[in-house]
Nucleic acid binder design. Structure first.
Lengths: 197, 197
DNA sequence: TCCACTCTATGACCAGCGTCATAACACCCG
DNA sequence: CGGGTGTTATGACGCTGGTCATAGAGTGGA
């Protein structure tokens, strides 16, 4: 995990996101983050003088940007770009991970929201920003597939809502069927919005 | 909160669920639970010799049973029972709470899943059981509304997935629009499954 | 060479947690 | 009345976490 390809600061943010999405925010220790990143503990206070809150916020924001960029790649990889195809690709990212690596981890943004939404901390705003950074590219991709502009944003919200919930249930049940079901049931609705308005 | 209507044990389980859904599992202290329940700390070790894990598991199971029973009440209160009406009622429970009491709390089962899904603890199984105790009545209600038996369970899973995700986003954004959107976009799909098979 | 500056490294502190140990109280049956 | 059982009440222990303080390396410019 101590790849020199990325700087130590980026490695720590990445490691924090990894641990948060597996254990939750509260259960993720600063010492663990440093250890996973192969960085000394002292570097944490150097790069993140705002303490754990700053580190968590950056990890959440990073996750949001990552998810947003991923959407563009999904669209590019589709033979025939359809809303259901995009949604299936988004869900497949999770089913693949769960089948290969087990159900250890979930979405870091969800973890941060559940753990820090109360206690008026800034982490809640970071989570909201992450969702926005994710929803934007999805809505954009939908319009590019023929979805009317007025429906693109609501449908993007619906897609992310359903995906997040399905991730949750899949993790609880240690079974990807909730994700598969979401794709199967929601696909036709999404394509219908693209075909004829 | 120290109502003598319920026994101290039940009050502690209830208080635990309340705190968990607001702060998460890890951030919920045993002392806080006892204080909220108006019970002495010593009673915790008396009623829950299994420690925090047992208390959390019972709180999660209680939440699942509560959600399941709630579904039957929703159906009974509907003038014309339709799948979309049921889903709207389920979502309204959350929008109402958020409008009145603010966005402090989420779903305790989701909190337990995010916080304890790793670390092969028994809490994950409790969460899976809670989702099952919730999905069952929903699927049953759907069949009662004319949804074919084969579609009832997948649609119930879809409803709960979407609702959970929308709760998450609403809490992060401090805005109920994700919940409203879910109801608006998913309603027609649900009713279509009930109308003609 | 010396000196700033960035980054690394480590030890210490305090607060909070879950848990344990132990006692006191209440109540009822014998 | 006495003793036992279920419950309440409180103090202490061990541990872990985030943070602070301080010092040690490395590096580049004057």
């Amino acid at each position: 995990m101590a790849q020199s390809r990325y700087g130590p600061r980026e490695r720590m943010v990445f490691s924090a996101a990894q641990l948060i999405r597996r254990d939750g925010v509260a259960a993720t220790g600063m010492r663990d983050v440093a250890a996973l990143a192969g960085a000394p503990r002292g570097s944490l206070q150097h790069y993140f003088p705002g303490g754990k809150e700053q580190l968590v916020n950056e990890a959440v924001a990073w996750a949001g940007r990552y998810a947003g960029k991923r959407v563009a790649r999904f669209v590019a990889d589709l033979d025939q770009p359809t809303p259901s195809g995009l949604f299936a690709a988004m869900a497949a990212q999770w089913t693949d991970e769960y089948r290969v690596d087990g159900f250890a981890a979930g979405c870091p943004v969800a973890a941060a929201t559940v753990d820090r939404a109360s206690s008026g901390s800034s982490t809640r705003e970071a989570a909201a920003g992450a969702f926005a950074a994710w929803r934007g590219p999805v809505a954009e991709a939908l319009t590019g597939m023929g979805v009317p502009a007025a429906r693109a944003d609501p449908l993007a919200t619906l897609m992310i809502s359903t995906l997040e919930g399905a991730i949750l249930i899949a993790r609880a049940e240690r079974d990807v069927h909730a994700l598969d079901t979401a794709v199967r049931e929601l696909g036709p609705l999404l394509d219908a919005a693209a075909g004829r308005s």
